[in-house]
């Protein structure tokens, strides 16, 4: 099979639906903590489908609220804007891709892994003193390139997955060998097109090679979070494989191993509840 050309990928990404303007705004500011809550809440409320999704999450048992939240404005007051922002962005992006019709690609498992990485990233960010919301969103979106490949190049991608199984290699290796490019590159193209915040773009592009990104991007956090989620075996698969941990990324975070062990337990305790809350 012929490998994919970068131009084909760019073309495919251009064909994907664009996100609602308010979601693009959320993703642009996902790593900033100084946003105008009221203004943002009003914008979210204008997009009814999006507002409905956000309210459904806000009212899920995970948040354990006594009474039902009826409006986005209430939700931002009760849960805090930062929470709502991550939730709305998550709901919008997961909703942007149609459910996979392919028996060989389990989309639910895919998003569960992303939620696991998002949780790990948020926990790591809190410890390392970087934006927790930015880290959560970046974790959630880090593998978005895989979804582009499944959606736009199903035959090619299926072959890459078969190759991975046959050789028991890393997904990244299989993608490069079969497709001539990998999901990080494809994700980068989408992240640019959808105007993610720069630190999130870097995380999508470099989560497998964090030493290529600058220390202030979220690539290192998401890299370690990805390894952590695989090591915790949050989405057990027979051929599950923990990707190699970058010593550069680990050292940049400066977290000690003892503290890391407590963080593993935190994530493990939250994982199922958050999946349920996000309806994944």
């Amino acid at each position: 099979m012929k490998t994919l050309q970068a131009q084909q990928v760019v073309e495919a990404v251009r064909q994907l639906p664009s996100l609602p303007a308010v979601v693009i705004e959320l993703l642009q500011s996902a790593d900033k903590d100084d946003v105008n809550a009221d203004e943002l809440a009003n914008k979210i409320a204008l997009d009814q489908a999006l507002a409905a999704k956000a309210l459904k999450v806000a009212n899920s048992p995970f948040y354990g609220l006594q009474s039902k939240v009826a409006s986005i404005q209430d939700a931002t007051v009760i849960l805090g804007l930062r929470q709502i922002r991550s939730l709305v962005a998550a709901a919008a992006v997961t909703g942007a891709f149609a459910q996979s019709r392919h028996s060989w690609f389990d989309q639910r498992l895919f998003w569960q892994h992303c939620v696991g990485v998002a949780l790990c990233a948020r926990t790591l960010a809190a410890e390392a003193g970087v934006s927790e919301d930015g880290a959560f969103t970046a974790g959630l979106l880090h593998d978005i390139g895989r979804l582009v490949l499944v959606t736009c190049f199903p035959d090619e991608y299926r072959e890459a997955l078969a190759y991975q199984k046959k050789h028991d290699c890393f997904l990244l290796t299989a993608e490069r060998d079969v497709l001539g490019l990998d999901h990080a590159q494809v994700g980068q193209a989408l992240a640019e097109r959808w105007h993610f915040a720069p630190s999130i773009q870097a995380a999508v592009a470099h989560h497998h090679a964090p030493e290529e990104a600058t220390a202030d991007s979220l690539a290192g956090v998401v890299h370690v979070a990805d390894v952590m989620a695989h090591a915790l075996d949050l989405c057990p698969r027979e051929d599950e494989l923990v990707p190699p941990l970058s010593a550069v990324a680990w050292n940049r975070l400066g977290i000690d191993w003892g503290r890391f062990k407590q963080m593993l337990a935190t994530v493990e305790d939250q994982f199922e509840d958050v999946c349920t809350a996000l309806n994944i």
């Binding site: 028991d168 290699c169 890393f170 390894v227 695989h230 090591a231 075996d233 599950e240 494989l241 923990v242 990707p243 190699p244 941990l245 970058s246 010593a247 680990w250 191993w257 890391f260 062990k261 593993l264 337990a265």
Partner: peptide, 23 residues
């Protein structure tokens, strides 16, 4: 865990494996 880390031979990953075994 031994299965999950079957391809992770580098020192950083080995350190992580040691910690995961303890955990």
């Amino acid at each position: 865990l031994q299965h999950l880390f079957r391809q992770a031979g580098d020192p950083a990953s080995q350190e992580l494996l040691r910690l995961m075994l303890e955990y």
